[in-house]
Design a protein around this nucleic acid. Structure first.
Lengths: 129, 129
DNA sequence: CAGGATCCGCGATGATACTG
DNA sequence: CAGTATCATCGCGGATCCTG
């Protein structure tokens, strides 16, 4: 049973909001890259490979706005911008790491559940109606 | 510093996938409702209020496929379908609860970071370019 | 180098109508 | 009651071109 009193609707939506941000296509990969230390824009882009410049910029902006990543501009030519995790950004990844471990530990069970479900519902290969 | 070796790109994407599911608009609210005990389709719909039938159905299907929720049909007229958390579904919400607590504890800091950012960037009220 | 501006496809979500 | 089917909308993410 899950304690409802500590999870009112408003709090729940707030958590959903954070999870949506963290769960988007690039955030985790970017944070993981920055977890190794501060990096410049093009270094991140190179490391992530397939990310578009737009999404890298947008994702970094969102992380910066929420206070998870810092952005340091050195005014020279050519420009130089370094991104780094803030203490809060680093701190967030304790609970995230716990979730990651859970995911890793249960990946097989989830796969099994999916295959079982798909076997029970042969009608038209899985499409999230 | 975040340990990179336990977070290769593939694992990271897998975690992102789970976070996306959990972080979508309705999943957490539905799971929270089911955390109080098994419930029928319309009971869930009534409790969530603003959700559409389509999204309730789809979200429940996804949760069922991943093995987090069970679906029990009693063949009578009118039909009767009960949804409940599986043991794995309940188990998942240990790490989720940890994340929830973190979010709750840092909500103010995040708000402050956002306001500070928006103040630093007055140009055209915030839009995630 | 580090973006900003623009156009586009697609999937998520929602609203409405219908059914066993 | 518990869905399915259809149509419309909206934002994500990608691709491309341009600039200080």
């Amino acid at each position: 049973m899950i304690p409802t009193d500590t999870h009112d609707t408003g709090t729940c939506q707030r958590i959903s909001e954070l999870l949506s941000r963290i769960g988007d296509k690039w955030t985790l990969l970017i944070v993981r890259a920055l977890g190794q230390g501060p990096k410049r824009f093009s270094a991140l882009k190179r490391e992530l490979g397939s990310i578009s410049q737009k999404m890298l910029t947008r994702t970094l902006r969102n992380l910066e706005r929420d206070g998870f990543v810092s952005r340091t501009v050195t005014p020279v030519t050519p420009p130089q911008v370094e991104y780094a995790l803030t203490p809060m950004g680093l701190d967030l990844f304790c609970p995230i790491a716990a979730l990651a471990e859970w995911t890793f530990a249960h990946a097989d069970a989830i796969d099994a559940a999916r295959h079982a479900y798909d076997a029970r519902h042969p009608d038209a290969g899985y499409r999230p109606a």
